[in-house]
């Protein structure tokens, strides 16, 4: 509602045919924060990200992204890294080619791919540690390298909002560590980052705040607030987790932090 809010959703409902994947979600994301979206499979995490990215239209409710409706955003505003990259891995492209695509939304068709664009690609490759792989065809990448290449493409876009859907699924520990570090650095630089994850491990190292979803918003607050709210216990039954958040915290007295409990 204020200029401090990157995303404002009010009573947002999103449907696939007859199935409501997200029901009456009301939430606010601040500028420059790293927000984790947690919840079991089918809880609407991907649906929320896709709706913010303008790939799905809400059935009802209101959604403002950077102050406007998602379809009115300027080109290149949102960078999205989907959960499963359904691309053809035999596509004739090198890592550089893929990361360079991140610049395309920013260029009108008469504009050349210039020095500024190349610099952005180089910076992105460096940030994900893939500079030495720039010339490698994407067909010859490991799963972790593929994921880092797609994150680099998103970074090269220089978006104002970064959406990551399950970025650590199926990647090695080193890549997971690297991604965590990248998200922290980007949000420290002022980028708003939304990350969907079903991995509740070390969420407090990834995120400033957590959104707990199970088709409805169960809680929204700092990791410790969310733990205190009890929303975790509501979802952890069907969520694969081994993190310390699950075991270590005693129930806080009196819910002092008042997380925004919705259900």
């Amino acid at each position: 509602m204020t200029r401090h809010d990157a995303i404002v959703a009010k009573n947002l409902t999103v449907r696939y045919e007859d199935f409501a994947a997200l029901v009456g979600a009301t939430l606010t994301v601040h500028y420059g924060e790293s927000l984790g979206i947690v919840g079991p499979n089918g809880s609407g995490k991907s649906t929320l990200l896709k709706t913010i990215a303008g790939l799905l239209s809400p059935a009802s409710g209101e959604l403002r992204v950077l102050g406007v409706s998602p379809s009115h955003l300027a080109h290149g505003t949102i960078a999205y890294v989907p959960q499963v990259e359904a691309v053809d891995w035999s596509f004739p492209a090198t890592v550089w080619d893929v990361v360079a695509m991140g610049r395309f939304a920013r260029l009108r068709f008469w504009q050349r791919f210039g020095a500024h664009d190349r610099a952005a690609v180089r910076r992105a490759l460096e940030l994900v540690g893939m500079t030495h792989l720039a010339a490698r065809p994407i067909a010859h990448l490991s799963g972790g390298q593929q994921q880092r290449a797609f994150v680099a493409r998103a970074i090269a876009q220089e978006p104002r909002l970064l959406l990551l859907d399950e970025p650590t699924t199926g990647v090695d520990a080193a890549t997971e560590e690297a991604l965590r570090d990248i998200v922290r650095r980007l949000s420290a630089d002022g980028l708003t980052v939304l990350t969907a994850t079903h991995d509740l491990d070390r969420v407090d190292e990834w995120f400033d705040r957590l959104l707990v979803l199970d088709r409805r918003v169960l809680a929204l607050g700092t990791p410790s607030e969310v733990v205190a709210s009890g929303a975790y216990s509501a979802i952890r039954e069907h969520t694969h987790t081994h993190g310390h958040l699950r075991h270590d915290h005693e129930p806080h007295a009196a819910h002092a932090a008042h997380p925004e409990i919705k259900a």
Partner: peptide, 12 residues
């Protein structure tokens, strides 16, 4: 051609 979904999200 390569990635229509991500291209669409970026505004293309």
């Amino acid at each position: 051609t390569f990635d229509p979904v991500v291209a669409q999200a970026s505004g293309i």
